[in-house]
């Protein structure tokens, strides 16, 4: 191989690296630019036996919103392994069950959350669990054998219970329930 050819190969290699980096950057930028859900958070002045610190509130909101992204990814890819990062206990087991049902039926579903109206309703005295209600709006899309079948915009009220782990809060219960009372600040 001549010196010129070598130099050219090196230039092409460098060019390829730069293009790859630019593509990664672009992909990241595009991912960041994906529409974020609208989030409204209400913390009633007195909602339980333990006051809620701002830091805890922010962490819970962050981790709860993350759980929707994780859930969407898991159900879109029928991927159990991603659940661990955001779910634990019953919520994780139930989502694993849904993934199993989807796999059997060759289905995938996609959830794109458009908005969340979060209300903290209970923070246990020892700080080991926190409960919130979420009036969520999202689009659900169902695909059969990889082919999109239908989509629908949904409004539902979810109740979520999160528990602390070493580094984050994880969702232990996530359940939409039509039976949730509206009077969320009802005195206990």
């Amino acid at each position: 191989m001549g010196v010129t050819t070598k130099r050219r190969a090196k230039t092409i290699e460098q060019f390829a690296i730069v293009v790859c980096m630019l593509l990664c950057l672009a992909a990241n930028t595009l991912a960041d630019a994906a529409p974020q859900p609208l989030v409204q958070v209400d913390v009633p002045p007195s909602f339980g036996p333990r006051p809620l610190e701002d830091q805890t509130r922010d962490a819970v909101v962050r981790d709860y919103l993350k759980c929707w992204k994780t859930m969407s990814q898991a159900l879109q890819e029928n991927n159990l392994s991603v659940l661990d990062s955001a779910f634990t206990g019953i919520a994780k087991e139930k989502l694993a069950g849904v993934i199993s049902q989807q796999q059997k039926a060759n289905l995938t579903t996609s959830y794109r959350d458009g908005s969340h109206h979060l209300r903290f309703v209970f923070y246990s005295p020892e700080g080991l669990s926190i409960q919130l209600l979420d009036d969520a709006e999202y689009d659900v899309e169902v695909s059969d054998r990889g082919k999109t079948q239908a989509m629908r915009h949904v409004k539902a009220r979810y109740v979520a219970v999160l528990t602390p782990t070493e580094v984050s809060w994880k969702v232990r219960i996530l359940q939409a329930d039509a039976g949730v009372e509206d009077n969320v600040t009802a005195k206990r």
Binding site: M71, L75, K94, L95, G97, V98, Q101, Q102, A105, N106, L107, T109, Y111, V140, V142, D144, Q149, A150, L174, Q175, A176
Partner: peptide, 13 residues
Amino acid sequence: GHLYIVGPSGAVE
């Protein structure tokens, strides 16, 4: 027809 009942809590086809 095809019937799909889906949600974060279950999926039936």
